[in-house]
Design a protein around this nucleic acid. Sequence first.
DNA 1: CATTTGTATAATTATTTACTTATATAATAT
DNA 2: ATATTATATAAGTAAATAATTATACAAATG
Lengths: 98, 98
Amino acid sequence: MNNIELMAKQLKAVSDPNRLKLLACLKKGEVCACDFVDVLNISQPAVSQQLKKLKEAGIIVERPVGTWKHYRLNEMQPPYIQAIINQLEEISIIKCDC
Amino acid sequence: MNNIELMAKQLKAVSDPNRLKLLACLKKGEVCACDFVDVLNISQPAVSQQLKKLKEAGIIVERPVGTWKHYRLNEMQPPYIQAIINQLEEISIIKCDC
DNA sequence: CATTTGTATAATTATTTACTTATATAATAT
DNA sequence: ATATTATATAAGTAAATAATTATACAAATG
């Protein structure tokens, strides 16, 4: 995959309202996967699939915590992805007890 | 359309290899539509449709020159779009005589 | 005015996308 | 071991995408 195709893939990963919202939730730090269902108002499998796309693009990182999966932004982002994250307004989430 | 949806729309406009190549061609300045067919190696209508998407997202600007259409980057871009443009390597095009 | 030339639109098609519901997997608790 | 709970995967579907070919439009030329 050349540079342009790689860029296109990463940009495709963030060119969706639900995935941008996931990133906006993660600006404050690590979030449990279960908390995203209420924010996006889509089914649990749909959330899981969207998180997978961000993860495969290298934009977010997963951390297993017992039965749960916690997600956070990758600390190193290409500048054009970082610029997108910077632009997003933080979304406050109601944390579950996990 | 809220902020996130607007962002998603603009990002979707640039999350395609052919459209990123169009932007890479425009980094040096205005280009005639006819020159893009050879660069992308797709049909003329396909080029026209891709240019339309970038134009509708406000990323490029069109200027009629007789029978021709010239395109250039919009001078004002949101920072996250500018960061993408900055990242692109310029593509040199063979200019037609229009 | 008719022809040529550059571009846009229409119609079609194959592929991708983003959900859904149903089911499987994995870790914890009983 | 069984049940519970969080997450992932599978299968299916509707909508969007990105190309194609055919056709229309618009400006310049003879």
